[in-house]
Computed example of a mutant assay.
Amino acid sequence: MAWMDRHNHTVLKEFILLGLTDRPELQAPLFGLFLVIYVISVVGNLGMVILTKVDSRLQTPMYFFLRHLAFIDFGYSTTVGPKMLVNFISDQNTIPYNRCATQLAFFILFIISELFVLLAMAYDRSVAICNPLLYSAVMSQSVCWVLVGVPYLYSAFVSLITTIKIFTSSFCGYNVVSHFYCDSLPLLSLLCSSTREIELFILICSVFNLVSSLLIVLVSYILIFKAILRMNSAEGRLKAFSTCGSHLTVVVVLYATLSFMYMQPKSSHSFNSDKIASVFFTLVIPMLNPMIYSLRNREVKGALHRMWKNLCKFPI
């Protein structure tokens, strides 16, 4: 009993991340693949942040939200990506205790913020399409800041509470995390103390975040589709569908993967399937978002062209 008591209160200094695969022949190809994905994600999202900040023609609510979406995508892909890449080429896939807690905190902060920024974008599009004459008055600068500021504060609160609850609990001494980053569910399986309170908190927050944000997105799109169907111009309908289709694609992929991970019963939970789902929303979606929202957008292409012309004016 004394040995068990000492074992149950082992002070961990680091965790071992199992990564995506334990097959050595796949490590190099996966490193190359995800390095390309991460570089494209960083360049695309930072480029979107800079472009929407410096170009005077992109100073609208739509691009304000796109800038924050790009910042968030850069944030959580960088929270996970570099460490994942290092683990592909490292013999010791370890992460220090404090860095694991930091990674978890930032990941939760960014992923919840993404849900509510997507909500704000859906609301912005519904106002633009359903009430174009009132758009400037409704989507004022102060309203836009509230729509992103409140989610940031709420996400920080949930992130801190979850991280503190997990890392102030007792670990059993077994430090192998069945994931390629420090996520809440794999860490909970390493705790000796009761996890019922933490699991309930995570479940309630996950359900609230997903259901409330998705409900508002769905209501916004119902209103959008009604407004589109009332349009007389076929060109106007096509343009509205094209704009909303990009946003809707991102929403469906993100919400489906998050629901699959955090809202399924514990008895049917599989960390291996979680890894596959996590790859999509931590690396693939942040890479695709700049392409979906930017490269197919004439205004963004025009801004890129103007920036390139301005850069070419400076002598090397």
Score class of each variant (00 low, 15 high):
M4S: 14
D5S: 07
D5A: 07
N8G: 14
T10W: 02
E14H: 14
L20Q: 11
P24C: 10
E25W: 04
Q27V: 03
F31K: 09
F31G: 08
L35W: 10
I37W: 10
I40H: 09
I40R: 06
S41F: 00
V43A: 11
N45E: 10
L46C: 09
L46E: 15
G47V: 03
I50S: 03
I50Q: 02
R57I: 11
R57V: 10
L58E: 11
M62S: 11
Y63C: 04
F64A: 08
F64R: 07
L66S: 13
L69D: 03
A70M: 00
P82C: 03
K83D: 15
M84K: 00
I89P: 02
N93M: 07
T94V: 14
T94I: 11
Y97P: 01
Y97S: 04
N98Q: 10
R99Q: 12
T102C: 04
F106I: 04
L109N: 14
V117I: 10
V117S: 02
A122M: 11
D124G: 04
V127G: 02
L134F: 12
Y135V: 04
V138N: 01
S140Y: 03
V143Y: 05
W145D: 10
L147N: 00
G149Y: 09
P151L: 05
L153W: 05
Y154F: 05
S155T: 01
A156N: 11
V158R: 01
V158E: 11
S159N: 00
T163E: 01
I164K: 03
S169I: 13
S170R: 07
H179T: 08
F180V: 02
Y181R: 00
Y181G: 06
Y181W: 07
Y181A: 07
L187I: 10
L188A: 04
C192Y: 06
C192D: 06
S193K: 09
S194P: 05
I198N: 13
E199W: 06
L200D: 15
I202S: 06
L203P: 00
V207T: 07
L214S: 13
L215M: 14
V217P: 01
L218E: 09
L218N: 08
L218P: 02
V219D: 04
L223W: 07
F225A: 02
K226D: 10
M231W: 14
S233R: 11
L238T: 14
C244F: 01
S246C: 05
S246K: 10
V250R: 00
L254N: 06
Y255N: 05
A256T: 12
T257E: 13
P265T: 06
S268A: 12
F271C: 10
N272V: 15
D274L: 08
D274I: 08
F280A: 07
L283K: 09
V284N: 04
I285T: 14
I285H: 09
P286C: 04
M287C: 15
M287H: 14
N297T: 04
E299F: 00
K301R: 14
G302C: 12
G302P: 12
L304G: 01
H305P: 00
L311R: 14
P315E: 15
